[in-house]
């Protein structure tokens, strides 16, 4: 989860990490969706790993992931339509999230189902905590709230200056950049 974190060390799955992190709530839904997809995709591919011909494995993997993502998307549409509208195209983009493909290719194709589930859980949660942290800072500094609860107004600081850049895409890049810096300084990982 931290030494081999998909986002800060392996540089995978950045797209969705940034897109949904304006507020904490959609980020939480997104994390759950990704954990679900990654665990089940890992399990299914791992079960089929001896049946898949090497040359068409990418297509098979994509088909499995696309089916799972369709499930998630239909589920959201049925039970939480507002959230479905907020996340919009980004749910669909879990398909091309490199974390999922990366784990399938690197781990599930070569390991037993049980190990693959654990690997999926680990990568999924590693992904989740990073995007939740990014979302926390972006919502706090950009909208002055946490889970839509106006925290600064609640403690009586009504003049808190919200930072428009944090709501914008740029905030995400900067917050993530700093987060990576902190995480790598602590773990001592250096890129050459």
């Amino acid at each position: 989860m931290s030494d081999d974190n998909p986002i800060t060390i392996q540089v995978l799955g950045i797209c969705s990490a940034l897109a949904v992190t304006v507020k904490l709530e959609p980020t939480l839904v997104m994390s759950i969706a990704v954990v679900f997809v990654i665990v089940f995709a890992n399990l299914i591919i791992s079960l089929m790993r001896n049946l898949i011909p090497g040359r068409i494995r990418i297509i098979v993997q994509l088909a499995v992931v696309a089916t799972l993502v369709t499930l998630v998307s239909e589920f959201l549409k049925a039970y939480s339509y507002d959230m479905y509208k907020v996340l919009g195209a980004y749910v669909g983009l879990i398909i091309t999230n490199c974390i999922v493909m990366g784990r399938l290719e690197a781990f599930a194709m070569a390991n037993k189902p049980y190990d693959s589930i654990l690997d999926g859980l680990g990568s999924g949660f590693g992904y989740a905590w990073i995007i939740l942290t990014v979302a926390f800072f972006r919502e706090l500094l950009g909208s002055g709230s946490i889970f839509d609860f106006k925290i600064f107004e609640a403690i009586g600081w009504t003049t808190f200056p919200t930072n428009g850049l944090m709501v914008d895409s740029i905030g995400a890049f900067v917050v993530l950049g700093i987060l990576i810096w902190i995480q790598r300084s602590k773990s001592g990982y250096v890129e050459h």
Binding site: I170, F173, V174, G177, R184, Y189, H192
Partner: peptide, 22 residues
């Protein structure tokens, strides 16, 4: 700075480029 090498500094630069594109 060594912790910022690679991905970290790239993210910050991307942020600045995004600012320019705004």
């Amino acid at each position: 700075p060594s912790g910022l090498k690679g991905l970290g500094i790239t993210m910050l630069i991307t942020g600045l480029m995004g600012l320019a594109f705004k």
